[in-house]
Design a protein around this nucleic acid. Structure first.
Length: 244
DNA sequence: CACCAGGCCGTGC
DNA sequence: GCACGGCATGGT
């Protein structure tokens, strides 16, 4: 089954990627520019090997999710094959703080403004996402001027508490959720996105507006435990299905 | 003009 | 514990 690379990179789990005119996807990660056409381009690079979680059997997971019920079958067949990325903790944290009460297009725009204004140029025209230290130069007023709105103080708090992100790996899921929510602007939904999309915690099940609709319509009375042990990947298929 | 977008915070009960 | 209004911005 061919991977839905566009949905994987642009469908709402990452805001780092740009689709170029020729169909190449590019992103600044790991202090350099990566350009790929498909997953096959990731196998020869150790950073991308981890980033695309190539050691996990997504085909098997997909088949088991597909066999769960008719809704998931339709979702999986329509969406194709998804992966869940293992992204940088810091980048993912700020990305999903930006995501609250926002849409993917505008989140991507704000992400790029942060890169252009506070990151550094690793190649002509390609800017890195700012480190906590780089972003600490920004005041709340600076961030509001960029257009992040009421999320400005949340970003400042994340800069001040970024050390939290190195403490997550040693915690169980519930403790990790609580720990991330010590940062202002991070609630249950954003915390679960961070745990899924950068800590490979497959039991996360973010409930955004799309998923609330989905659960009310197709899974009344059920919760994330129904999807065990594929909570995160099932959610990702359903999210793409609902938006599609 | 309204309502929505990968929600959360502060307040009130 | 749960319900509610407010919140910046841009798109429909």
């Amino acid at each position: 089954m061919e991977e839905n690379i566009r949905e994987i990179l642009l469908g709402g789990q990452s805001f780092s990627w740009t689709e170029e005119e020729d169909g190449t996807f590019s992103a600044v990660l790991n202090e350099r520019v990566y350009r790929i056409k498909g997953i096959e381009d990731a196998y020869s690079d150790s950073y991308l090997h981890s980033y695309f979680d190539l050691d996990y059997d997504y085909e098997k997971a997909r088949q088991e999710i597909r066999a769960k019920d008719e809704v998931l079958k339709e979702a999986v067949d329509k969406v194709g094959m998804l992966r869940i990325l293992k992204q940088d903790h810091w980048i993912t944290t700020i990305s999903f703080i930006l995501s609250q009460n926002n849409n993917i297009k505008r989140i991507t725009g704000l992400y790029r403004k942060l890169c252009r204004n506070y990151g550094h140029e690793v190649e002509e025209g390609y800017w890195s996402f700012p480190t906590p230290e780089e972003l600490s130069r920004a005041t709340e007023e600076d961030l509001r001027a960029l257009g992040v709105g009421f999320r400005a103080p949340f970003i400042i708090d994340a800069v001040n508490k970024h050390y939290i992100l190195s403490q997550i790996d040693s915690l169980d899921f519930d403790s990790a959720m609580d720990k991330l929510q010590e940062i202002k602007g991070i609630g249950p939904k954003v915390a679960s996105c961070i745990l899924i999309f950068s800590y490979a915690r497959r039991e996360g099940f973010p409930m955004d507006t799309w998923m609330k609709q989905c659960m009310a319509k197709y899974y009344p009375g059920k919760d994330k435990s129904y999807f065990h042990p594929y909570e995160a990947l099932s959610q990702q298929y359903l999210f793409s299905f609902m938006r599609g």
